[in-house]
Simulated assay, not measured.
Amino acid sequence: MTDLLTLEAEVRTDLGKGASRRLRHANKVPAILYGEGQEPVSLTLEHKNVFRAQQEEAFYSQVLTLNIAGKPVECLIKDMQRHPYKQVVMHLDFLRIDAAHKVQANAPIHFINEDVAAKTGANISHHVNEIAITCLPKDLPEFIEVDLANLTLGQTLHLSDVTFPAGVTSDELAKGEAHDLAVVTANAPKGKASDEEEEEAAAE
Rank of each mutant, 00 (worst) to 15 (best):
N106G: 06
N106V: 11
N106C: 09
A107C: 03
P108W: 05
I109Q: 07
I109G: 05
H110P: 05
F111A: 04
I112N: 02
N113E: 06
N113R: 07
E114V: 09
E114Y: 00
D115A: 13
V116F: 05
V116W: 00
V116E: 14
A117Q: 00
A117I: 00
A117T: 05
A117E: 04
A118F: 13
A118N: 03
K119T: 08
K119S: 02
K119R: 08
K119I: 00
K119A: 08
G121H: 09
G121N: 10
G121V: 00
A122P: 06
N123S: 13
N123D: 06
I124Q: 00
S125R: 13
S125G: 11
S125M: 09
H126R: 12
H126I: 08
H127C: 12
V128D: 04
V128H: 02
N129L: 09
E130W: 08
I131M: 14
I131V: 15
I131H: 05
A132K: 15
A132G: 08
I133Y: 04
I133C: 04
C135L: 05
L136P: 07
L136Q: 10
P137W: 08
P137Y: 15
P137G: 13
P137H: 15
D139G: 06
L140N: 11
P141N: 09
P141C: 12
E142A: 15
V146H: 10
V146C: 08
D147K: 04
D147S: 11
L148D: 10
L148Y: 00
A149G: 04
A149F: 04
N150Y: 11
L151E: 02
L151N: 09
T152N: 13
L153T: 04
G154Y: 09
G154P: 15
Q155E: 15
L157K: 13
